[in-house]
Design a protein around this nucleic acid. Structure first.
Lengths: 163, 163
DNA sequence: GCCTTATTGTGAAGAACTCATAATAAGTGC
DNA sequence: GCACTTATTATGAGTTCTTCACAATAAGGC
């Protein structure tokens, strides 16, 4: 583990520049998200409570959605799973989700810096001004692929959630 | 409106080929999804009840998720919105969501037939075998863009859901 | 038409998230 | 450093979307 003081100061100044007060709750949530990327609110609460036991779930929800609006955090929602959060923002990366175990991996963009930002519109649709293009890959991770080779293992279609 | 009998027979044979019985509930749900693409379960229930008033919400949920597993329907979950369903499957198209009003438009793939199916993996991540790449565009539709020009209109950040 | 078993309806429960309001504490000025 | 103002957090309940267990119903094969 590296020196967390550096991160804390970076978070503090980022909060300041967005006109937010620097509270231990926000710092704890930010640290928890950084140490546990792709985690749901519940897991972030659990992690943050190791530093700050009196933190409540509702505060975590408020902080997460506020920081997401500020673009200090990024939120994404895999199918059949609660929303996940991460600190890696602004680099336009995407995600791959294992449909068997729910594991999430980061994926850099395949088509350069701003991929697929110029969609081909249907003839009958009204074009929109696109701001974000999120790509969600779904597949099977190496571990689950290995498990499915075993004879006793039945094909688990929708077993997402790593609880 | 075209002749619905044709569609019904197509749905019936598709259900048969998946080993499912042909029930009026399934046909009503399929017709409702076809006539109201990108609709949540609640709207599908309402639409299907016009043909079949005794249909229940729980049946709709069961039918929708079963038909989605069979790939006869496609399900996707825009942020801050319940799951939406559509009958257009197997053509690898994507979706654009207006972050202001929640309107959804279909988008054909920008990069050909199977776009972005070869992600660039992080150095530290374990590659997965990718099966699906869902692209979710987020932007502002023409109507909302026009509305935001008006002085009295405040910037509505997260008003999704067309209830 | 009858029978078997998939399918649907019933009623309730669960997970994830949000809301209203009171308590607390961060930052500002003295 | 201390009081004050207002943003922030905690409390407790409520909402929404979805699923579960089990009984009632009906589709399709004989």
């Amino acid at each position: 583990m590296a020196d967390h003081t550096v991160d804390q100061e970076a978070w503090a100044s980022a909060l300041h520049s967005h006109g937010r007060r620097v509270t231990k709750q926000r710092l704890a949530v930010l640290a928890a998200v950084q140490n546990h990327p792709h985690s749901p609110a519940e897991a972030i609460l659990a992690a943050a409570r190791k530093d700050l036991p009196e933190l409540t779930a509702q505060s975590v929800y408020v902080v997460l959605s506020d920081l997401t609006d500020l673009q200090m955090l990024r939120r994404f929602e895999p199918p059949h799973s609660p929303a996940l959060y991460e600190t890696r923002v602004g680099d336009n990366h995407h995600h791959a989700v294992c449909i068997s175990c729910g594991r999430v991996e980061d994926v850099d963009c395949a088509v350069g810096h701003a991929p697929c930002l110029t969609p081909h519109w249907d003839e009958h649709s009204k074009p929109m001004t696109i701001q974000i293009a999120d790509v969600l890959y779904q597949g099977i991770c190496q571990d689950c692929q290995a498990k499915q080779q075993l004879p006793t293992q039945t094909y688990a279609t929708h077993e997402i959630g790593e609880r």
